[in-house]
Amino acid sequence: MIKLYGTSMSRAARSLWALEEVGVKYEHVPVGFTGELRKPEYLRINPNGHMPALDDSGTFLWESMAINLYIAEKYGKAPLWPSTVEAHGACYQWSFWGMTEVESTLLEIFLNQMQPAEQRDAKVAQAGVEKLKTPLKVLDDHLQKSDYLLGKEFTIADLNVASVMSLAPLIQLDLSTTPTAQQWLQKCLARPANQRAVAMK
């Protein structure tokens, strides 16, 4: 039995989305942001004390991107998990790109909007907006060639990058200069599997 630990208000949301996409039976175990993450029983699953964590009948995984790629490879079918090694490489590429080129900057902007007013730094937030222009143009240029990241079909690469980009609407990031990427993101986030995932606790 698969168990996914974490709240949909964290990176666990992308793993819940992946589980919903593949349609496998699983148990969602909500975990709070406070003391639950430091309890010994949770640290045995994820010694880092972060969300999410996956228990697949005794196989334990942490790091949301690793969890998602594992879910897609083990339980997904084409096109979600493509059939060629070359396409697998593209899935890894875009998944890691989302983490290294986009996510940390989006989080920086998000925190500067959500923190108490006296702790916010408008200059840092604006610098983040400027910094994102380059990777967002890379994404937009690529998507002008195809409907999804790997072609005509939605794959785990789209899910992983869209899950990172899901912060953009929350911080009201202006994506009008990258309209193809904006439309792609809206299309991905509107998928029923994602809607079910974000509705969880």
Score class of each variant (00 low, 15 high):
115 Q>W: 15
89 G>P: 08
100 T>N: 14
76 G>M: 04
75 Y>R: 08
67 I>C: 02
78 A>H: 11
113 Q>W: 05
66 A>I: 11
91 C>N: 04
99 M>I: 10
78 A>S: 14
105 T>K: 10
111 L>P: 00
117 A>F: 08
70 Y>D: 10
79 P>D: 10
117 A>E: 12
85 V>N: 14
96 F>E: 06
85 V>Q: 14
64 S>Q: 00
71 I>H: 01
119 Q>D: 07
117 A>C: 09
103 E>P: 01
121 D>I: 00
116 P>N: 10
93 Q>W: 05
70 Y>V: 07
119 Q>G: 04
84 T>W: 10
69 L>Q: 05
97 W>E: 04
101 E>N: 13
62 W>S: 02
115 Q>V: 06
64 S>C: 08
100 T>L: 07
113 Q>R: 08
83 S>Q: 13
113 Q>H: 10
68 N>E: 02
99 M>Y: 12
93 Q>P: 04
86 E>R: 14
90 A>F: 11
84 T>V: 11
86 E>L: 15
107 L>E: 03
102 V>T: 11
109 I>W: 01
112 N>P: 02
93 Q>S: 13
76 G>A: 10
96 F>W: 13
74 K>W: 09
60 F>C: 08
72 A>K: 05
60 F>S: 01
107 L>H: 04
92 Y>C: 12
121 D>M: 00
66 A>K: 09
76 G>Y: 03
70 Y>S: 09
110 F>K: 06
61 L>P: 00
77 K>T: 15
57 S>K: 12
61 L>Y: 04
97 W>K: 06
106 L>V: 03
74 K>V: 07
90 A>V: 14
80 L>A: 05
114 M>G: 09
59 T>V: 13
95 S>C: 12
88 H>G: 14
78 A>V: 13
114 M>I: 05
59 T>M: 11
98 G>S: 11
95 S>A: 14
70 Y>P: 01
106 L>E: 01
82 P>H: 03
121 D>V: 06
71 I>S: 02
80 L>W: 06
69 L>C: 10
106 L>S: 03
77 K>E: 14
107 L>P: 01
84 T>A: 13
57 S>F: 02
64 S>M: 04
58 G>F: 06
75 Y>L: 06
69 L>P: 02
68 N>R: 05
108 E>N: 10
116 P>V: 08
120 R>T: 06
89 G>E: 11
